[in-house]
Design a protein around this nucleic acid. Structure first.
Lengths: 208, 208, 208, 208
DNA sequence: AATGAATGAGCGTTCATTCAT
DNA sequence: AATGAATGAACGCTCATTCAT
């Protein structure tokens, strides 16, 4: 067992640092100066691992997607039996995602802005549109399978267009989420979880 | 009637040009160089009218909100009688907004990104949070009054929480809207209107 | 008797304002922006009265010299009878100069820096060297005549080179004065008067 | 021994160039354009070595003081035996300082203005007040020890306040020195040395 | 693998000045 | 006598990138 820092370690370390910075300040506002300061590496070292700032962005994006995709609950369909269990699963999954984020952000603050990160990334490189859409589709799938579970246990009227329900719930979540970013809450994590919980309640109230 | 260019004309002209640029490239990516090129004015002239880039942003923002707020349909409650009339009113309103935009954008391209504009503006100046929220609230109100009209004519079950319906529909719209930006459609306006139409259909299907 | 503001009034008003600014911030650091703000006039108005910033400097300089030259005690030779009367005359003259300054500076602060003003003025326009030297020569003359008075009343050994004494005392004063500017005294006027008093004492002690 | 240009070489080279420019034109009038032209380096390169223009000023100032402080005559007290030896020591010291300066200024012109440099530096950064005062105090000390030497050899009446004499002579020198700057002499060095010589003569004549 | 010296274009901003009104 | 719209050059500074070591 050796403590020697491998090239991969350094690359990953740069990616983590860059992700943290991108999420909190936005891609445009992160400079090599910032990266140097936060990584403790020289400009040359960073250029040795990544060909350009855009390269960093793309790599960070992939890194982010990989991290975000890791903690997938295997089969919501088998878990969700009724609305309370759906809600619990959803909130637990989100909590887990937050913990993942916090770990990524150095455990300190959760002052990130995913939306800005996505938008800037996509403006800089159109290739990133596809993975973002895929990520969204994954989340919609997760919801759809949950609805399937509900239906199986008679908690959702048969014949409902589950795919449509899932998509709409997802957008409602997204919209409600973005609202938090416009506000200046103290405890971002709590705000998010509250919004998720309320939105779920509202949703089921709405579809009766 | 005179053709003399007044100071206000120039200010408005700068604001229009800046709005166009901000919407298509984002605040960060618009430089005084761009503004000079597009307005035909010198840097000094622009600074004569606006104290700083941030001042331009704030002024553009107010200008944008004023423009967006002008074409308000007076009373959706009186107009909406059933779902088709709701849908027609909504789409007509959106079409009108698009025309307003297109006029603003010089009639040429509709390659704008409202979301990025809002996010960057707010990141640059927290005072802009409030007007954005107000604008959103106005749109939600519009929807709520439409639901009231529906209810009055028996097209919506009595006792429904109309405010909740309105908010959720708004978020669904927002989410669906943002999806368009991630895609690379040829005819942005048609894409938007289609999405609005589909989303409305989905919504009413969903709440039965 | 009329209250109408004449052109001369405005010119003088600009000069006073400019002098105040030059003395407190230095020529280089005073912009037309500053002049506009402090005079309440427009750029064009200032340019109407003075052809350029250098023109303002030269005019201000003449204005300053005229003001400084106005309060000349007519004949120190007739007044100075002994060292105490010399000291009194000198300090009174300086006090009078300060009052003149304070009036000029709007009665408020005495945070001026004559030395910087002279140096910058001269660097900008070599023609200003001569009047500065003349002003200095006037002050030296004042001292020389005082020494003449002392000698006449037997308070100064006959045969002393009064011109040399005057010049040296003047330089000592200048040096001591400049020292004040390097320090950050609270009460500049008191500091100056103390230094003058001490320097005079030292001087007479020195030449026995 | 290698001819490789090290980072320190470049830093020192920038400092030398900046000092030269500051002394001849004043801090305010020296731009990065000037620095680029005179050093042959790019703006970015200069910024790589110094964080800001103020940083350059402070560093130049320290560099100047270090250079000025290097050529200290060890013990004037042991060397000065009579007025001629005092005068010789003083003029030799000044000549040595001039040579140092000339070397610094590239051997070419001696069109510097120490006074303006000090004033501007101090106005830009109050921390520089202290070292300037210390430098002045060193020169006064030098004079005081010379007087001690004179006294020891009976060339100065016992009981004279040597400290006071030194301070006053220093200010006379300063005043006389500054006069040179107001004039437009052809041979600055000769002018300075003449003034020093005359002032010393005058001084000893004055205190008899 | 990593350093940091150097580049050159671009940034937002301030400046003194001109001129039509 | 006075306004203020407009100019264009210059300012200090930051940026992503290159490259010799």
């Amino acid at each position: 067992m050796t403590l020697k820092k491998t090239a991969d370690d350094t690359k990953t370390f740069i990616l983590e640092t860059a992700l943290r910075l991108f999420l909190s300040k936005g891609y445009k506002d992160v400079s090599y100066q910032d990266l140097m300061k936060k990584t403790g590496l020289s400009k040359g070292a960073i250029y040795h691992h990544f060909a350009s700032k855009e390269d960093i962005l793309v790599s960070v994006f992939e890194f982010f997607l990989k991290s975000a995709g890791e903690n997938k609950t295997p089969s919501p369909e088998g878990i969700v039996k009724d609305i309370p269990s759906f809600k619990k699963l959803f909130l637990d999954t989100k909590k887990e995602q937050f913990n993942q984020f916090k770990k990524m952000m150095g455990g300190k603050d959760l002052q990130f802005n995913k939306l800005l990160f996505f938008l800037e990334a996509i403006m800089e490189n159109k290739k990133l549109i596809e993975p973002v859409e895929k990520l969204m589709q994954q989340e919609i799938s997760f919801l759809e399978q949950s609805f399937k579970g509900l239906e199986k246990h008679g908690k959702l009227a048969k014949g409902k267009n589950r795919s449509l329900l899932a998509k709409n719930l997802f957008w409602m979540m997204q919209g409600a989420e973005s609202m938090i970013l416009f506000k200046n809450g103290k405890d971002l994590e709590k705000d998010f979880l509250n919004v998720y919980s309320d939105t779920l309640d509202d949703f089921f109230k709405m579809i009766k």
